[in-house]
């Protein structure tokens, strides 16, 4: 269970990117986050694992508060939060197995990481997961030799190796061709069920969001303005999420703050 309350993120003295956002994600649900570029989707995900430092508000994962952790505590918390990236973010010059084992770096001692002497259980788990997503035969290939869809599978397995309590996917299919894109969405959907994980997916492809997730959340101006089942997302809801231009968004945002200041 992920519970976000009154989350605010402001970069420097600019307009806040997130303005008091509330969101609850129960276990075993796949949630799509949609919204125009710049709505704050990426910032929201990165606030959860603290790649971005939230300005204020609270984020609780299974009862543990994440926003006030530091150093070792933060690293321990991050081990249980898997993340999948738009650009895959693999280490190109390492093999697929090494990339996958990166997911265990928070758990194993330094010498094992340095000598590539991974624990047998980790290697076993890596093979199981790689077989599950169909990349086991690439274990010894370098990551940059794989195609986009295969690279994202490595990214998914790396995140799952962490034994995560939640998966965050930041536009996981935006750099993929349509076929690989659907395969990755299908994979995320079934994995969420198999491993009983909550999954948050930032996504631009609304059709895929409707098809593969049970819940869609729409963001605009750093707030949630839609939260419902895929069938509830009708044309008028789409318009409120996506209408307007970035310039209007900024204007709207400024009006919001001036109103907030007055009240």
């Amino acid at each position: 269970m992920l519970r976000i309350q009154q989350l605010v993120k402001r970069y420097g003295h600019d307009e806040p990117v997130l303005k008091g956002l509330d969101l609850e994600v129960p276990d075993e649900s796949v949630v799509s986050i949609i919204g125009a570029s710049g709505a704050g989707k990426s910032t929201l995900l990165r606030c959860i694992n603290r790649l971005v430092e939230p300005t204020s508000g609270s984020i609780e994962l299974n009862g543990a508060e994440l926003t006030r952790l530091h150093g070792n505590e933060l690293r321990k918390a991050r081990r249980r939060i898997g993340m999948i990236f738009q650009g895959f973010n693999l280490v190109d010059r390492l093999t697929v197995m090494e990339n996958v084992q990166c997911g265990r770096l928070g758990y194993i001692p330094y010498w094992r990481a340095a000598l590539r002497k991974y624990p047998t259980a980790d290697i076993d788990r890596a093979y199981t997961l790689m077989e599950r997503v169909g990349i086991a035969h690439y274990a010894n290939k370098r990551a940059d030799e794989l195609s986009g869809g295969e690279r994202q599978r490595v990214g998914v397995v790396r995140a799952l190796m962490q034994n995560p309590e939640i998966l965050l996917a930041d536009e996981p299919t935006a750099s993929l061709d349509p076929v690989s894109s659907r395969q990755i969405m299908e994979l995320l959907q079934t994995l969420a069920q198999e491993l009983q994980l909550p999954v948050l997916i930032n996504i631009h492809n609304v059709a895929e969001a409707r098809e593969y997730t049970q819940r869609i959340v729409g963001m605009r101006f750093g707030r949630l303005i839609f939260d419902g089942k895929p069938e509830d997302l009708d044309q008028s809801a789409m318009d409120t999420v996506y209408s307007g231009t970035p310039a209007e968004d900024r204007q709207q945002a400024e009006q919001d703050t001036s109103r907030a200041v007055v009240s």
Partner: peptide, 10 residues
């Protein structure tokens, strides 16, 4: 990749 590995808690 640095960001990705930081996110794993390494």
């Amino acid at each position: 990749p640095v960001e990705a590995l930081e996110a794993t808690g390494a």
